[in-house]
């Protein structure tokens, strides 16, 4: 190991796994561009929160997970969903409000989930998923399943009371939870400098006697390695960790954002640090694939997204008479 200076992901995972990681990063990027375009064309209503620019954080955090492992996600959760194995066709169908969607058109972008793959769902409430992930950790521990729960949340959620209560409980009960804060610098328009007393959110781990790590969230290998260590610790029964992935959303908070709180220069600087280009370059450098193979991965992801949009367009609209279906179990039939 000591004489192998290659990045962690290259050392740890085989070529097929790494190629799939690149594919998922492209899928996230093209899925969100496709969703944005569909929104502009009036095919999707409501709003959405895009994570373009944060793809490494989502995919690298999930690369070591199985379908038995759980994740809780956020309102900026499309990337987590794809990372955990969701099909983009059914995701688009959900955005289009169709029965074929993951939530049969009842949830939309902010509640997308895929429980069969261990994705317990995006969440419209900032910090809503934090205690829920701890509950998933409690189940894993009590039923001895060996599973871990990955809890994604944003920098905004680190100032919610739920953050304090959830991290404290996970720590006192030594639950298999990995808290991953995707710090993209702004909770809507308010910067972490203005909202948060500590410089790095991972410093808050000290208050819960758990390890805390601040990582370059656009560096696939750095994220994968840090999360891998935390997962190993969780599975060994040693308790939770807090990881802070420093990253950036290229787009605004949501569709109502006029971008008054950050400069074009800042945005451009982060676009220059594109996590997909960076990972792709790394894979080529270490001969996992060559330029034309990388291009093929991108092209196939683009085709998958295009096919997904067509699938969604041809989906079935829910019947209005089914409005109250799924409120209670007995109304499912």
């Amino acid at each position: 190991m000591s004489d192998d200076n290659r990045p962690f992901a290259i050392r740890k995972y085989d070529a097929a796994r790494l190629r799939d990681a690149l594919r998922k990063m492209y899928l996230i990027r093209f899925f969100e561009e496709g969703a944005e375009d569909s929104y502009m064309r009036g095919l999707i209503h409501g709003t959405m929160h895009l994570s373009i620019g944060q793809e490494a954080s989502a995919v690298a955090s999930c690369i070591g997970l199985t379908d038995e492992d759980k994740i809780t996600s956020t309102h900026r959760g499309h990337g987590h969903c794809i990372s955990k194995g969701a099909e983009v066709g059914r995701m688009f169908a959900e955005f289009f409000g169709k029965e074929e969607g993951y939530c049969h058109g009842r949830g939309g972008s902010m509640h997308i989930a895929d429980v069969t793959k261990g994705n317990l769902g995006a969440n419209g409430i900032v910090g809503g998923g934090l205690p829920i992930a701890v509950g998933a950790g409690l189940t894993a521990k009590r039923l001895n399943t060996g599973a871990v729960a990955i809890c994604f949340f944003g920098d905004g959620a680190n100032n919610e009371g739920a953050f304090h209560e959830a991290l404290n409980m996970a720590a006192i009960w030594k639950l298999p939870v990995v808290f991953i804060c995707e710090n993209n610098k702004y909770g809507m328009s308010t910067s972490t400098e203005r909202s948060t007393a500590v410089k790095n959110i991972a410093e808050r781990a000290v208050a819960y006697a758990m390890p805390g790590h601040t990582v370059d969230g656009n560096d696939f290998s750095a994220v994968a390695e840090t999360v891998e260590t935390a997962i190993a610790r969780a599975r060994a029964g040693e308790g939770p960790s807090l990881i802070e992935n420093l990253t950036y959303r290229w787009r605004g908070h949501s569709k109502s954002d006029r971008n008054r709180y950050r400069t074009k220069q800042e945005i451009d600087e982060w676009i220059a640090r594109d996590p997909i280009q960076r990972f792709r370059k790394e894979l080529i450098e270490h001969a996992i694939l060559d330029e034309s193979e990388a291009e093929k991965v991108a092209t196939e992801a683009r085709q998958e997204v295009e096919a997904g949009i067509e699938f969604a367009k041809s989906g079935t609209a829910p019947r209005v008479s089914d409005l109250a279906r799924y409120v209670y179990a007995e109304e499912n039939a």
Partner: peptide, 21 residues
Amino acid sequence: DTPISELGGAGVAVGAALTGL
């Protein structure tokens, strides 16, 4: 016994119920 954390405690119960307890 939970800490005095009603929001978190209720949420842990929700997450546990969602995943099989």
